[in-house]
Each structure stands twice: as C-alpha cells, then as structure tokens.
C-alpha cells in the first residue's frame, strides 16, 4: 500500500459556505416540496414563509461564494477539461470495484477531478443559478407589473423551478453517496469539516495544477 499524507484542501470560508449552503438546500428542498403539496410538515403557510427567507438567505450567501471564488482565483478549479475524464468515469464504473487507485490525485491546487469540475460547474453555473433565478422571480410574482415582467408565465416558471428542484435532489443523493468513496468511507466528509484530507501519496500531473499568475 502507498504511503498516506494529509493535505490542506478547504479553507475556512470554503468549509463554511459548503455547510451553510448544504443546510439551506436541504431546508429549501424540504419546504419547497411541502409548498408543492408533496407532504405536510410545517404547514403550507409556514413552509412558504421559511422557503422564502431561506431562498433569499441562500442568494445572499451565493453572491459571497461567487465573489470568493472569483477573487481567490479558485474559479480555475472549475475550468472544464476532458483530460482523464473518461478514466475517472471508468474508475467509478469499474476500477472502484477492483480496488484500483483513483486515476486523479487531489492536491491543494487541484481539488476536483475532471468529472467533479464538470459537475460543479454545471451545478453552480446552470442548475443553482437557474433555481435562484426562477425562485427570485417566483418570489417577486406580485411585483411583475412594476418590473415590466408581465410577459412571464407563472406556470412555466414553476415548472422550471420544480424540475430544477428534482435535479438538485438527485444531485444531493449522488453527492452524499460519493463522499463515501474517499480513502475511507468518511475521509471526504471529515475533510470538509477540518479542511485536511488524507490522501495517498502520488504525483499530481502538471496539467492539473492551476498556476496562480
């Protein structure tokens, strides 16, 4: 077996936003689907009130996240690449069952494998943004006339918001499961708490390292 080492992957703000965002998304799913009529938990009225405040809180947090990602240069971690993408896909669909090592090493400068890059970019740039956009418009429904938005259709908006909600729920399920695929079952999750992740020693390919300029 290869030697292990600990690397510092996630800064304090990163860990903070990750967990707050996950809590918000969990609660948004809960209250959102209650609003949709899927089940009764808080009661419709409370669910709507909570959902709106949670949604607005999330949008504010998200602005800080985006600001952080842009100003720290961390956005480079999300530049999509197809290099080794298929190796990673191959790893999760067969290598992992054979006990083979992960084809891409983690490092401070390259904390996401190519599959993660694609997923997180799509998630952040498309899915979450769309969800926040439609949510905000939904929330502003009564002011559409003031904002000259009356061309919008609430049914269509609700359909997009709901479709994204399902996609986010599916993502959360897979995402939570994927955290168990680290060096040990909990090493990924532990890293998101402490910032430090235990990884196997190995070379990080040059292309993976995003040089700061």
């Amino acid at each position: 077996m290869k030697a292990k080492k600990k690397i510092y992957l996630y800064t304090r703000f990163e860990r903070f936003w990750h967990w707050v965002q996950s809590l918000l998304i969990f609660l948004l799913l809960l209250t959102g689907f209650e609003v949709h009529g899927t089940f009764t938990l808080f009661g419709f009225q409370k669910a709507v009130e909570y959902h709106n405040y949670l949604g607005l809180t999330w949008i504010i947090l998200f602005i800080f996240i985006v600001f952080w990602v842009l100003t720290t240069g961390e956005w480079r971690q999300y530049i999509p690449t197809t290099k080794k993408l298929f190796e990673v896909i191959g790893y999760y669909s067969s290598g992992i069952f054979k006990g083979l090592p992960h084809p891409v090493q983690k490092s401070k400068e390259a904390k996401h494998n190519p599959l993660q890059r694609l997923t997180y970019l799509g998630l952040t740039a498309v899915l979450l943004t769309l969800q926040m956009g439609t949510g905000l418009l939904y929330w502003l429904y009564n002011d559409w006339a003031i904002w000259n938005l009356t061309f919008l259709d609430l049914r269509l908006l609700a359909i997009i918001h709901l479709a994204c909600a399902f996609a986010i729920l599916a993502f959360v399920i897979i995402h939570v499961y994927m955290t168990t695929t680290g060096h040990t079952l909990t090493s990924h999750i532990a890293a998101m708490f402490s910032g430090w992740e235990e990884v196997e020693e190995g070379e990080v390919a040059d292309w993976e390292v995003q040089k700061k300029n």
Binding site: F166, L169, Y177
Partner: peptide
C-alpha cells in the same frame, strides 16, 4: 385559468422527477 402553488402541478413532471430521484437512490 391560473397557476396556484400547492394545488397545481404537471403530472408528467412529477412522475419524471420522482423517477429521477428513485433512479438516483437505486443507482447509489
């Protein structure tokens, strides 16, 4: 003639949505 949250939904979307969620659970 109007959309109302909690009352309305598109049956197909709900079915597809829960199918996706179910498939994810089954997959993992």
């Amino acid at each position: 003639g109007f959309y109302m949250p909690g009352r309305d939904s598109v049956g197909l979307l709900d079915m597809g949505g829960w199918a996706l969620v179910g498939a994810s659970l089954l997959g993992v």
